[in-house]
């Protein structure tokens, strides 16, 4: 990213943020929906835990924290969270206007998606976290294990969003080829949702599945920071996780830019 462009990216970021903050009622509605989901998931797991023997790799209170964090930062983790305007731009060919701007389109869109996710979470996370802390056991969200865990949580959470945005950039890039976002969005979204532990928390997965999921980048956005918070992952492992995040982020962004350039060249050749 060249320095002169930073201002452009920043103001694009700000406009997005302000736009999304406008929809307060929608945010309130989303809040209630997520509370409901969180409760439901914990209740279901609670029912399962009632028959459990001792061999469960994660305690119910830890799991409750894990789920509340998932709900609070849903917008950070969910891959199906999308920008219909951008899809419209690609499918209608209006992307040409974006190409006229003196900015790197990959970063420009990356920042735009990032802003959407941050503004989406900014409204939702605080009330969810607050209320969830006040709930009775076993539904309560527990505070992080210690300050170091909390700081590492923040760090990995932020890197996690970057990874997630980089992954979703591939959905947009793919749309240049398929011209219809529906299929790829749903398939990548669903696979990603499952592999990031949104449907079944990763600690509860059977060994073989966990081995697969741990190799994929999807868990780095949510599962990793949430488990750091709940103390399920130790300091040592957390730092390794952070390094893995950085490696993945670098790789995803590198290949993202590469394929973006390829796809754009093709689009221009076809006359858009």
């Amino acid at each position: 990213m060249r320095k002169g462009n930073a201002a452009a990216y920043f103001s694009s970021f700000r406009i997005r943020l302000m736009q999304n903050l406008q929809y307060r009622v929608a945010a309130l509605a989303g809040l209630m929906t997520q509370f409901f989901w969180g409760f439901m998931l914990i209740m279901i797991l609670e029912a399962f835990y009632r028959n459990s023997d001792a061999s469960i790799p994660m305690s119910l209170p830890q799991l409750a924290s894990y789920i509340w964090l998932q709900q609070a930062f849903l917008v950070f983790v969910a891959l199906w969270f999308r920008d219909p305007e951008m899809f419209g731009m690609i499918t209608s060919g209006n992307v040409a206007y974006e190409l006229c701007r003196p900015t790197n389109l990959y970063y420009f869109w990356h920042v735009r998606l990032l802003a959407q996710r941050i503004s989406g979470a900014a409204l939702r996370c605080v009330p969810i976290l607050l209320v969830a802390t006040l709930l009775p056991d076993p539904y309560r969200l527990r505070p992080p294990a210690d300050l170091a865990a909390f700081l590492l949580f923040l760090l990995t959470l932020f890197t996690g969003v970057l990874i997630n945005v980089s992954i979703s950039m591939f959905i947009y890039i793919l749309t240049f080829v398929t011209l219809s976002p529906v299929g790829s969005l749903m398939i990548i979204g669903t696979v990603g949702e499952f592999c990031s532990g949104m449907i079944l928390p990763i600690p509860l997965m059977p060994e073989w599945l966990r081995n697969i999921v741990m190799v994929l980048p999807f868990r780095l956005a949510g599962d990793l920071p949430f488990r750091i918070w709940s103390g399920h992952i130790g300091m040592q492992e957390a730092l390794t996780g952070f390094l893995t995040q950085l490696l993945w982020l670098g790789a995803l962004m590198f290949f993202g830019q590469l394929s973006m350039r390829k796809v754009l060249n093709k689009a221009v050749l076809q006359g858009g």
Partner: peptide, 29 residues
């Protein structure tokens, strides 16, 4: 057809999650 396939995938992932929970816990209540 693609959309239909994708539409099948979404509940399938939920279903798989349910099965895996049963694999670990055997009983629900």
């Amino acid at each position: 057809l693609l959309t239909m396939l994708a539409q099948m995938l979404i509940p399938f992932s939920v279903f798989a999650g349910m099965l895996l929970l049963f694999q670990r816990f055997h009983l629900l209540g």
